[in-house]
Simulated assay, not measured.
Amino acid sequence: MRVIAVEEHFTTGELLEADGIGGPGYPSERLLDLGERRLKDMDAGGVDLQVISLAAPGGQQLEVKRAVPLVRRANEMLAEAVFCHPDRFAGLAALPTPDPEAACAELERAVRELGFRGAVVNGHTRGRFLDAPEFRPLLELAAHLRVPIYLHPTPPPDVVRRAYYSGISPEVDGALATSAWGWHVETGLHALRLVLSGIFERLPDLRVVVGHLGEALPFMLRRVDARLSPEVMGLKRQPSWYLRHNLWLSISGFFFEAPFRTAMEEFGAEKILFSVDYPFASSAEGCRFLEGLGFGPQEYAKIAHQNAGELFGL
């Protein structure tokens, strides 16, 4: 059965340097590869198609004068790879959100000219979330184009890092702020802010994807409903309604059965997408996890490829 993985990453040499990431243990070479090495890993792991997006922090933390040209060139590099391997790769547009107007222009160019299937936003933009008024035209455009925005984690702002994630040890502090805890709950908060600001009520066609089996939202969903009633929010429905209607969840390295079952219970098989989080996780491990869940062919097909095909127009 066909397998589509929807949160698979790449980067460029320019962005590695500009974002100041890399070093021992960081998979720079695999992120930079958009050719044979990536295809061999997909074949070995059992992935038929990758939906590829720019790895965090992407362009979200850069100054405007650097974000716009670096992001445009990254999108063109990805578009070339998709052109060369149209049956194996699809692209999500990186956006230079430090300049909201340029981000709109780049989303439209990427979808209409480069053939991308949506966009990725790597977390906050220099401390600002997408519910900020300056990003309203970008969200309106995504809804109008009927393409999803993939909301991916990124390290927290320095002031948050110092207040919440410092003082234990450099190794522990760094993991706690990012992949062990911090950036997951921040991304869940980011999605929840879109609900509470009324954006999904005003833009019912806006579609958002979050990874890591929902960034803790499935676990917290009923508590959120209990504490944030429609009357408190000034909206028509409970928070869970908007999240279930406008949000999709991908697996992306969360190869753990208990959180998967919670996500299934709260969102249903129709809203779960397979993903690996390549190259930060193993394609083979991800496919084994999916196969080991014991689904019948109908549910397996939805998660493995049908949901992604419908959402991204693949």
Rank of each mutant, 00 (worst) to 15 (best):
R202K: 15
G268A: 06
P157T: 05
A216F: 14
G13K: 05
M264C: 05
P96Q: 14
L273K: 09
A55K: 00
W241K: 09
L203M: 09
E134Q: 15
G198V: 01
A103R: 02
N246E: 11
L247W: 03
E171R: 15
A258S: 05
L130T: 03
R136I: 13
V71G: 08
E63Q: 12
V224C: 04
E113Y: 07
C104Y: 10
A103V: 07
V208W: 02
H184V: 01
V208D: 02
G115H: 07
Q306Y: 04
I168H: 08
V3S: 06
H124P: 00
V47Y: 04
C104S: 14
F129S: 04
Q50W: 00
L151G: 03
L141M: 09
E265H: 10
R223C: 07
H9G: 07
S275Y: 03
L290Y: 11
A94V: 13
S240I: 11
F116D: 05
H212K: 10
V208S: 03
K302Y: 04
A74Y: 07
I52E: 00
L189V: 09
G182K: 05
G20D: 11
P86Y: 13
R66K: 12
V47D: 06
I272L: 15
E108Q: 14
D48H: 10
V276A: 02
S169V: 09
M1H: 13
A119G: 12
Y278E: 08
L16A: 02
H85P: 11
L235R: 13
K302F: 02
G91N: 06
E113D: 15
A103C: 10
H9Q: 10
V159M: 07
L249G: 04
A284D: 09
L70G: 05
A119H: 08
F89Y: 15
V111L: 07
V47K: 02
L139R: 04
D277Q: 12
W183M: 08
P239E: 04
A258I: 03
E106S: 12
G20W: 09
P133M: 06
V224R: 00
A301S: 13
F83Q: 14
